[in-house]
Design a protein around this nucleic acid. Structure first.
Lengths: 216, 216
DNA sequence: AATTGCAACCTATCATAGATAGCCTATCAC
DNA sequence: GTGATAGGCTATCTATGATAGGTTGCAATT
């Protein structure tokens, strides 16, 4: 019995048997468990067991449990940034760009509810707040990044003239975030048809911020 | 040493010394601690100590820690309902009613962030989800109640004619919730002037749903 | 080839969380 | 008085994230 307990039965614990880093493997496993059971329901022990190592060993690769989530969150938001760039690369009217960007944002939230939660809905606990002040929290960085992109596009849509662009951008973000977060947080609410609701919501937001003031 | 340890030094533990119920006292103390340190940072042991009883004794009055929060949440939302009724009792145009209702909603969220979190932002954990299915969760009831009120007012503002009133109501709720929840969840974000932002946001939402189509 | 160094891993353990078991006691109804 | 009971207690359980300190095996140095 020289080998450690490994539920998969594979020789995963041979020091060199894995191509990638252990860190990567942990992230993969964690992401899968998060998607399967929800982030709040997954413990470090579960992750460790699924990887095939002991729970304390996780701390050799991550400083804390939060760091695992944060890393995954960062990567997820990189995906949103990528998707947004694709939207803007496609030729379309400013209004259409704006609409599709909102759509991409909502879709992202619904596809990665745990990551979205982490970025915009969850309480930043005191321990993490210290990192934030040093500008070191990847989650917050990801969140900010997403907003910055929205603001830029809004500036393009409205023309850079507007004085209140910051307020407008924040208001729009709030609206889009509102639907996204509610759909995530209260899936059991008697929602109207989801597609129709999202479409209406985005139409409404877009209608408000047209330079040509033509509500379609 | 026949008397139990009581940090306050008062005779609070004499069985009959308190006018109100123990349950009420616990709720009072818990609310105060929540407001002071944030709900997530307050443990049942802290509450018990502040009350002057042992931690397990709490379970004689509440079935779980969640029940304490839920009860407080329910009461807080009763306050929102009350405030909303006051708004509607005041004579004003439908638009003004609508605006003030949104304002009351946002103010409520900012005044009771923990309760708002519980109702609309937090994950309903599996244990609680069972209660929800039985329709027994006071938090969810409170949340639903708040939305129902909004929908009624919207119906009055738009006239009952509209087919899509459900979608519109949900969209509006999402927008107002969006700003409320973001201000709660990300207080450190470089927000524009809060008053101006809220005003703009509500103006924008109101402008969209005018029966007379006059954007002021 | 032997030694040193280090990264990755282990077991054992901590503190804190919510929650339960089982006993004690003061009051109240009779 | 006597018994029931509400409210309380201590002791304990399970699960959480996290730390301490020892062990192992590869690799680079000597």
């Amino acid at each position: 019995m020289t080998i450690t307990t490994n539920p998969t039965g594979t020789a995963a614990n041979d020091r060199r048997s894995r191509g990638g880093d252990r860190r990567e493997q942990i992230l993969d496993v964690a992401l899968q468990l998060f998607a399967q059971h929800g982030m709040a329901q997954v413990s470090t022990r579960q992750i460790a067991q699924a990887v095939g190592i002991s729970q304390p060993s996780l701390y050799a690769h991550f400083a804390s449990a939060h760091e695992i989530s944060a890393e995954l969150c960062l990567r997820a938001f990189a995906g949103l940034a990528e998707a947004s760039r694709r939207v803007l690369a496609e030729p379309a009217s400013p209004r259409e760009h704006f609409y599709r960007l909102g759509r991409a944002y909502i879709d992202f939230g619904l596809t990665h509810p745990d990551m979205y939660r982490l970025a915009f809905m969850q309480e930043t606990d005191p321990a993490v707040a210290k990192l934030v002040q040093q500008g070191n929290d990847p989650v917050l960085a990801a969140g900010q990044g997403a907003f910055d992109m929205l603001r830029e596009v809004l500036a393009r849509v409205l023309g850079r003239s507007t004085e209140e662009i910051e307020i407008q951008a924040q208001s729009i973000w709030a609206s889009v975030h509102g639907l996204t977060s509610l759909l995530i947080a209260r899936p059991m609410f008697p929602w109207a048809d989801r597609e129709a609701l999202i479409a209406h919501h985005l139409e409404a937001v877009c209608a408000l911020y047209q330079p040509d003031a033509d509500p379609r």
